[in-house]
Write a protein that binds this DNA or RNA. Structure first.
Lengths: 330, 330
DNA sequence: CTGAAAGCGCTAACAA
DNA sequence: TTGTTAGCGCTTTCAG
């Protein structure tokens, strides 16, 4: 059933029906008639047709690298909370860390499919930049900082710095690092830089073989820890760029009966839900993921209302949560 | 830019452009012209306008109770994998366990917004049923079994039964239960029934005060364990309806220096990623969440191709993973 | 294989 | 306030 059939059924004009669903510039009498006919027929207007005319889809595109990650789902939770309250729905694209999917979804979102985009990015290439510059709708980048765009990001460098500093302040002398792909500026590069700064500040140097790059998984953390502890000289603290990596590393340490924190301290980033139930509870830098989602969504809403020429970068701070894995006397 | 402007720019007719993006019943010459103009102008057709005519949105509605849950995100991962490969996008509604949001999103999806719906349901009311029966597009229910609908679900009863049986076979005599809201048939009722069956089969009875209903969180598991262990007579095994509940319970046990598995065995459901890194690794019934998503998506695709009158229920089996928390000699 | 033209279902400008 | 009507941008006959 379409609007004119329905209008006939309700005994009103087409525009009365349209007004009923929009501004409501309508007499009570007709409102009533329409309401009754609605009950009878179960008619619902077509969103697509509406979108053609009004150029509003009430849809927000969200691009994310994976779904089953605690940090990402927390961000998405925040986004969904704010946007849902404003009557927007989320069009989710899970790129599965596939670069091409990322590009194609940016393409997709140019096709008048959504009113705005939130992009949980990890790595930017030139193609990303070129595509982003062509977007005719507001885009907010969450989790990374990209010059010339509106971003919500974390203080990754600071979080890594403080976490590492904590371990060094407890007397560690042979720090090791299990990080992420440095092309990922936030989780890879910045956290590496924070680690380096703390080490340098403590007047120490890092043995290059004490630096490993892992994937974002427990399995990878396990493997890298195995390598780190295969040398005669062992690290006495390990900074891990994510809690998943840290948990995997700790799994290996337990298998090898290497004691945490007595033999080696471990620090992570993210403050995952499981941290406090690990066999030794994990110290971690809490990042405000959900808040990042909330703020990103708010920023997008404000951009959609009136797009500003000034780009804003919102950096959220961190909080060091000390738990068992660094519980040593200095 | 719209199709006719673009057609003029490309020096072809409007229908040639339309055909280019659809069936491609077109001469090479014009294809080439269009391709070039595409490069020049960056034109993209409007999805909404296309949807009005063709009645196809290439969008699938996914209704879920929350995002930040490992089980749910695994299901969604599976859905996204299958549907993404077929060129569908996901329109995600996070109901945040809010009954009204669930209803309103079903309403929303009736409005020609999506081509099909996957509903990760927890509790069904009459209103749900009435709304579901009015849907004019295929709906697949994942995680629950609802008569008269196409469903993909787990053998929740069996999983709970086997997990409980495992603990009883190791000599436990005072079983306890921390479950979920029984209105949630799968996670609440069925898992409770499985627990009961195993207990009965072992010739035991459960003290009613040894049965608690928790929320789906560690915090809640912690609280319920506290109550369970507040009596003089303590349980010697606890079946938890989810791993999160189990992890929370174990947190309490550790605080109280109650030993797992020596003093009490713990069994969970879901085989969460963190299970093996807990301070005592957690035995759990693995449920095939991602597979459920994959199968649900496939079922939806087949329903969208040609809707069948016969409703199918696909029940996925489970797998008991024995770990430290039940590692006792019988 | 092609282009003109008639819609798809809705919104919004317009005249009443 | 109302109803009529001309589009929105695209697809899809239909006649060539």
């Amino acid at each position: 059933m379409n609007i004119s059939e329905f209008a006939r059924e309700a005994g009103v004009s087409v525009s009365a029906v349209s007004r009923y669903f929009n501004n409501g510039y309508l007499s009570e009498d007709k409102k009533q008639k329409i309401k009754e006919a609605l009950e009878r027929t179960g008619y619902t207007p077509s969103y697509s047709a509406r979108a053609v005319r009004s150029k509003v889809t009430k849809l927000i595109g969200v691009i994310l690298p994976k779904l089953s990650s605690e940090s990402i789902s927390r961000v998405t939770e925040g986004i969904s909370q704010v946007l849902g309250a404003e009557g927007f729905e989320l069009l989710l694209v899970n790129t599965a860390n596939d670069y091409n999917r990322e590009i194609s979804s940016l393409e997709l979102f140019r096709q008048n499919r959504v009113d705005g985009v939130i992009f949980l990015a990890s790595v930017f290439t030139d193609l990303h930049r070129s595509l982003l510059s062509k977007m005719r709708i507001p885009v907010i980048i969450v989790g990374q900082e990209l010059k010339g765009y509106n971003c919500v990001c974390h203080n990754d460098e600071g979080a890594a710095y403080s976490m590492t500093k904590l371990m060094l302040s407890k007397g560690a002398k042979r720090p090791a690092f299990i990080g992420a792909n440095p092309d990922d500026k936030a989780a890879g590069m910045d956290r590496r830089n924070g680690f380096d700064r703390a080490v340098k500040e403590a007047g120490l140097t890092v043995d290059p073989k004490f630096c490993e790059i892992a994937k974002f998984s427990m399995e990878s953390g396990y493997e890298k820890a195995k390598r780190l502890f295969s040398y005669k000289q062992k690290p006495d603290c390990v900074f891990c760029a994510t809690d998943n990596i840290a948990a995997g590393a700790m799994l290996y340490l337990r298998e090898q009966s290497i004691r945490v924190p007595e033999d080696v301290m471990i620090g992570g980033v993210g403050d995952s839900r499981f941290d406090k139930v690990l066999y030794v509870s994990l110290s971690s830098a809490h990042l405000h993921y959900k808040t990042a989602g909330i703020e990103g969504a708010k920023m997008l809403l404000s951009e959609m209302k009136n797009s500003s020429e000034v780009h804003r970068i919102l950096q959220l701070e961190y909080e060091i949560i000390e738990r068992g894995s660094t519980d040593r006397q200095p």
